[in-house]
Simulated scan of single mutants.
Amino acid sequence: MHTKEELCEKIKAVFPEIGACGIDLMVDYDESNKAWVVDLKKDQHELKTFLEDSEAQQCMDGKQCVSLGLQIGQLRKNIEQL
Rank of each mutant, 00 (worst) to 15 (best):
S67H: 09
M60C: 09
I23T: 01
D30C: 10
G69Y: 08
L25H: 02
D28M: 14
L25M: 10
Q64T: 10
G22P: 00
P16H: 13
G62V: 08
Q81F: 12
V14M: 08
D61Y: 13
E9M: 15
K10Y: 13
L40P: 05
C8E: 04
D39Y: 09
D53G: 13
L47M: 12
D61K: 15
E80I: 10
T49R: 02
I23W: 06
D30Y: 00
C59N: 08
E52M: 14
W36D: 00
L68M: 05
K63H: 11
V14P: 11
L51P: 00
C8S: 13
E6G: 06
E55I: 02
L51S: 00
G22H: 01
Q81H: 12
K48L: 09
A35P: 03
D43H: 06
G62T: 11
P16K: 08
G22M: 02
L51H: 02
H2C: 14
W36T: 01
N78Q: 15
Q81M: 13
L7R: 03
M60D: 06
K41G: 01
D24T: 02
D39A: 07
V38C: 03
E46R: 15
Y29K: 01
M26Q: 05
V14Q: 10
K42S: 08
Y29S: 01
L70F: 09
G62W: 15
T3L: 12
G62A: 09
D24C: 03
M26T: 06
Q71P: 00
Q44R: 02
N78M: 13
E55M: 04
Y29N: 01
M26F: 07
G73A: 08
